[in-house]
């Protein structure tokens, strides 16, 4: 059943209000809005799902099935803003949105999964308890959740990813990355960046990617293990800090010239030492593996 749309012209903008329906009645809204190049899309959802895909047309198509909620769409040629306004004990809404490629996105969900694929522009995605999945983005990109998992693939630019209790995964990024978690694991695979950092409390951190000359790479945890697998030849000055953890290294650890050592910290150089790598874990084990080399940590 299609929902009647109340369209109110407000200056240059348009406000579309999809009328609420009785509880339990699933309602569908489908609308398409012409936008100019570079127009931004913003969406706030409460519970349900948000799927964003691309269209070749210069327009934004919004398809939403919802229950016990009101959908507000505020549109101009440069910004389309959509909001789910829940009624009492309700607010489920499943969105499928099509936007032009490279559209800057802001999507916020509460208990809503967020899944964005192929848009390849700037993105700021956040959910409280839902999962966040993003494939293809560039520029300033952030994807965060509180208890959901976060997965980002094919990102370029500057990437911030994090979850409090969920896992955080980045696969395939040519970006500077900042990743954080408390208890979830952080996986950075095929990450190529000059400034890469990951931090957790009890979650494991793993990194696989090239360590570039002049780059800075920082990985720190409290009790989580660190598994670092540099791709290709490694040339880095490596600082290791731990209280009661261990270091297992496939690379020779030589505390000779240029190396320094304190009670719980030491530094050594591999190759020419062109990159700066900081590895710190209070009680976890730090594994420094040659790229692709399986280690004992893989057997767990």
């Amino acid at each position: 059943m299609k929902t009647p749309i109340l369209a109110l012209a407000v200056g240059l903008g348009v406000v579309l209000l999809a009328a609420p329906r009785p509880a339990g009645a699933q309602t569908t809204l489908d609308t398409t809005l012409a936008v100019r190049a570079g127009a931004r899309f913003e969406l706030q959802n409460v519970s349900g799902t948000v799927r964003v895909r691309t269209t070749r047309r210069q327009e934004i198509r919004i398809h939403v099935e919802y229950d016990r909620a009101r959908i507000e769409i505020d549109a101009s040629s440069s910004l389309v803003s959509v909001r789910t306004v829940p009624r009492r004990n309700g607010g489920d809404a499943d969105y499928t949105v099509e936007v032009p490629a490279n559209t800057p996105l802001t999507v916020n969900g509460i208990s809503s999964d967020v899944d964005v694929q192929g848009v390849c522009g700037e993105a700021e995605l956040q959910s409280v308890s839902g999962d966040v999945r993003l494939t293809c983005a560039q520029g300033n990109v952030s994807a965060t959740s509180v208890s959901g998992d976060v997965v980002v693939a094919d990102a370029r630019g500057r990437l911030e990813v994090g979850s409090t209790s969920g896992d955080v995964t980045v696969r395939g990024a040519r970006a500077d990355v900042s990743a954080h978690s408390v208890s979830g694991d952080v996986v950075l695979a095929r990450v190529e960046g000059q400034d890469v950092g990951a931090e957790s409390v009890s979650g494991e951190i793993s990194f696989a990617g090239p360590i570039r000359d002049g780059g800075r790479y920082r990985f720190q945890s409290h009790s989580g293990d660190l598994v670092i697998r540099p791709d290709g030849a490694l040339s880095a000055t490596i600082s290791v800090s731990t209280f009661s953890g261990d270091l297992e290294s496939d690379y020779p650890v030589t505390l000779g010239q240029g190396g320094r050592m304190r009670a719980r910290e030491f530094e050594f150089t591999v190759g020419g030492g062109g990159a700066r790598v900081t590895l710190a874990s209070f009680s976890g084990t730090i594994y420094l593996r040659r790229g692709g080399a399986p280690g004992r940590e893989d057997e767990r």
Binding site: I110, S111, V128, S129, V146, S147, T164, S165, V182, S183, V201, S202, H222, S223, F243, F282, S283
Partner: peptide, 25 residues
């Protein structure tokens, strides 16, 4: 929502344990 509160509280307990260990050290 209660699930979020639980997740946050669990995380805070984990951090509190880490703080206690770090403080003792």
């Amino acid at each position: 929502d209660s699930a979020t509160v639980r997740a946050v509280e669990t995380s805070l307990r984990i951090i509190d344990q880490a703080i206690a260990q770090a403080r003792a050290a």
